[in-house]
Design a protein around this nucleic acid. Structure first.
Lengths: 217, 217
DNA sequence: CGACATTTTGAGCCGTCTCAACTCTAGTGG
DNA sequence: CCACTAGAGTTGAGACGGCTCAAAATGTCG
C-alpha cells in the first residue's frame, strides 16, 4: 500500500543482520536470477498470469486476498528459504507483497519441467500449514491465535526464544482474523504476565514456553 | 461418532440417487480396490500412518481436526470425484470420516510411483481452496460464510439450483467456524427473504443467485 | 528536534455464543 | 397405519468477546 523506495537498505539490514541464517535454501532446479523487492512493493497481483515461482532468499513476504470493501486476509507469511507463487491454474489467485526489503530467487514456471518430488512435498507442506491455520481462524480465541502465531514464528526461525517480526500489527491482525487493537491488547497482556518480552516493536522474546504452548491447547 | 450399520443403504440412496452424477472420476493410475464406509465411520485418524490416498466414488467425507477441549474445525468436505488423504510427511495430520454411506477408491501410496501432473494439480487446487476458505473464516460474517458455503456446494454439484447437503448443521458450523444455532438462524433468514428454499433438512434450492452472490462481496 | 505513522489504551457497542425450551423429522414398534 | 421416541434442528433471551471509534503514547525518520 505504501511505496517506500529509499528505506530499503535499512529494512534489509534489520531482517537479515543479527542472528538467524539457519534456514537452508535447497530448492534450486535451474540457474535463476535474484530480484530485490523494496518494502511494500508488489511481487504479483491477483488475476495476473502466473509465470514464475519464487523462493525467499532473505526478507519476508505476505500473501493475501481482499474483499470488495477492503477487508484483507493474509493467508501466509513467507520467510527465508520458503517457496511461494505456485498456482492451480494459469493465473494468481492472491496478491504477494514484500514486507521488508526482500531478495527473491525467481524460477520461470516454464523451465521447471517435470514436477520434482521436492516441489511436490513443499506444496503439501503449504497445504498442511493452510489447513492448520483454518483451525486457528475457525475455532480459537484472540489470545490463542496470537500464541499460535508466536510459536509458529519461533519454530520457523529455528526454535530460539528471540523472534523477529518483520510484519506490522495490521499484518498480524489480517493474518489472524483480528483487529490491530485486539492484537495489541493480547501482546500487552502476554507482556504483563511475563510470558513474552517485547524488546522492540518488531521483535519478541518468549519467556515461558509452556505457558504459551498451553494457550494453544 | 455414531456407529450406524443398518441404515447405511438408505443414506447411500439419498446421496447417490436423484440427479447429479455429473462429476467425472478421472484420476486412476493403477488398478485399485473400492471400499464402502458406513455413515460416521472413520477413514483415518490424526497421527495414523498415511498409507493410502482416496477418491470419493459416491458419498461425502469430512476432514477435520480437534482441539483438546473438543472444539472441532472441519477443513474440507469431499464429494464425488474428489481426492483426499495426501500428507506432507508419513502420518496423517487430520481425521477423515464418511458423512453418508460412501464408496472410496483406495490407492496405496507406495504404488503411486512418480508424481503425475494430474495429482500435483489436484493438490494445488486443494491448496487454493484452503487458502480461499481462510478468507471466509478470517474476515466474513456469519451470513457471508453461509452464502459462500452454499455457492461453493452449488458449483461443485454442477451449478444447479438444487443442492444436496449430506452434512449436518453441526458439520456446517464446524466448517464455517460458527455454532449450529447461528447456522440455523442464517438459513432461516435466507429462507424468509426468499433467497433460498429448504425442501428438506439436507437439501436447499437457490432462488436468487445474485442476492446470494452479492452477500459474499 | 519536530512531524507523522504506528501502536497502545480506553469506553461503549454489536454480532455471535451460550443456555434453554420448543419443534420437526425419521425410525420403531404396537 | 399411527402413536411413541430419540436425535436433529429451530427459536428466543441474555452474556460476552472482539470490534468500532476516539485519544494518548511511542517510535521513526526527516
Amino acid at each position: 500500500m505504501l511505496a517506500y523506495t529509499t528505506i530499503q537498505m535499512s529494512a534489509q539490514l534489520r531482517s537479515d543482520g543479527g542472528e538467524t541464517p539457519i534456514i537452508p535454501l535447497p530448492f534450486c532446479p535451474h540457474p535463476q536470477q535474484i530480484n530485490f523487492f523494496a518494502p511494500g512493493s508488489e511481487i504479483y497481483a491477483q488475476g495476473e498470469k502466473a509465470v514464475n515461482i519464487y523462493q525467499v532468499e532473505f526478507g519476508a513476504v505476505r500473501i493475501y486476498r481482499l474483499l470488495a470493501d477492503g477487508r484483507r486476509q493474509i493467508s501466509a507469511f513467507h520467510l527465508s528459504g520458503e517457496i511461494f507463487g505456485l498456482e492451480a491454474d494459469a493465473n494468481h489467485h492472491f496478491f504477494a507483497e514484500a514486507i521488508t526489503g526482500t531478495n527473491l530467487r525467481v524460477f520461470p514456471r516454464s523451465k521447471l519441467g517435470d514436477i520434482s518430488q521436492e516441489l511436490f512435498s513443499l506444496t503439501l507442506r503449504s497445504l498442511t500449514r493452510a489447513q492448520e491455520h483454518l483451525l486457528v481462524l475457525g475455532r480459537q480465541t484472540a489470545a490463542e491465535r496470537v500464541a499460535a502465531f508466536l510459536l509458529d514464528l519461533a519454530e520457523r526461525q529455528g526454535g530460539l526464544e528471540q523472534i523477529e517480526m518483520p510484519m506490522s500489527r495490521m499484518d498480524i491482525g489480517d493474518y489472524l482474523g483480528l483487529t490491530i487493537e485486539t492484537v495489541s491488547r493480547v501482546f500487552s497482556k502476554l507482556k504483563d504476565t511475563g510470558i513474552i518480552a517485547l524488546p522492540t516493536l518488531r521483535s519478541a522474546e518468549i519467556r515461558k514456553w509452556n505457558a504459551l504452548q498451553a494457550m494453544c491447547e
